[in-house]
């Protein structure tokens, strides 16, 4: 839902980042307002996953330029846990398995950390169990998964449901979902997308990082951005995703090549 007067939640300006000595992001700018759903599309290696990890504060990535403001504050100066407590959520492309740590306890500790960030009281074990059982329905997840170790032995679909369950519990203002559709069969995709749609509202925003159009068949974006070589090459409405689907990514390559050739020709 696009409302030009809605408050800006996330403002990315000319963001540049590298991993080890490899520059990945080469100047990304993006403004996200409350109520909006953005899709960031692009080929593997275009930098879209890096963007999500930089926003969440992954220590392997170094920001080399640009700014990110979240609710008007400098996001990049915050530790990852403080970003999460302030309501930024990253749904992982490959959720991490943590043997020996019970999923239920993990969810409770995470939920209480976020509640503390919102100035709300911590939930005790019983109150939390009630809450988690209610939120399980958002992703139609079997309560048996609460008793297991975090993501351990979960199938790809179960891991992604567990991500959306975390999103449902943490009540984020900006959710960045990195390739949430990868590795899902059509039923799992429908359930996960249903969860995302259920949680999207006028006060929060969602950034979908995806390779394929098919996720956008079930979640309708307000904006589609096409990334290539660490930049946003083009921005449009949902029709841009359809165009990508039809024409493939080849034209992106052509456009990119032209862009990179231009300065040389001017010389």
């Amino acid at each position: 839902m696009i409302r030009p007067d809605a408050p800006v939640l996330l403002e990315i300006h000319d963001l540049q980042a590298r991993v080890e000595d490899q520059p990945i992001l080469k100047g990304v700018s993006l403004t996200v307002r409350a109520g909006e759903i953005h899709a960031v599309m692009g080929r593997n290696g275009s930098g879209k996953s890096t963007l999500s990890k930089v926003l969440a504060g992954h220590p392997a990535y170094t920001v080399t330029g640009g700014t990110v403001h979240y609710l008007g504050e400098d996001l990049l100066s915050l530790e990852p846990e403080l970003r999460a407590r302030a309501g930024l959520f990253l749904g992982f492309q490959y959720p991490v398995e943590i043997p020996g740590v019970s999923n239920l306890e993990f969810l409770r500790v995470a939920t209480n950390a976020r509640r503390a960030g919102k100035g709300e009281e911590e939930l005790d074990t019983f109150a939390f169990e009630d809450l988690v059982r209610e939120r399980l329905q958002v992703v139609q997840m079997d309560p048996a998964f609460l008793e297991r170790s975090v993501n351990e032995g979960f199938s790809g679909g179960e891991k992604k449901r567990n991500e959306i369950l975390q999103m449902a519990l943490l009540d984020p203002l900006v959710a960045v979902l990195d390739e949430t559709d990868s590795g899902l069969d059509i039923d799992a995709l429908r359930i996960v997308a249903g969860g995302v749609n259920h949680l999207a509202g006028p006060d929060n925003a969602t950034l979908l990082i995806t390779h394929y159009q098919r996720l956008l068949d079930v979640i309708t974006p307000d904006y589609v951005h096409v990334m290539a070589a660490g930049r946003i090459l083009r921005t449009g409405g949902k029709e841009l995703a359809l165009e990508l689907e039809e024409r493939g990514y080849d034209w992106v390559d052509a456009e990119l090549a032209a862009l990179e050739r231009t300065p040389a020709e001017v010389l």
């Binding site: 990852p80 846990e81 991490v96 943490l170």
Partner: peptide
């Protein structure tokens, strides 16, 4: 590091995340 970051990305402070992981290892 990826386990620590996963926990941190859920609002769990680094030292608490380390304790959780250590506990998991022992459990």
């Amino acid at each position: 590091q990826d386990e620590l970051f996963y926990l941190q990305s859920r609002g769990i402070a680094a030292d608490q995340a380390a304790r959780l992981l250590l506990r998991g290892f022992c459990e």
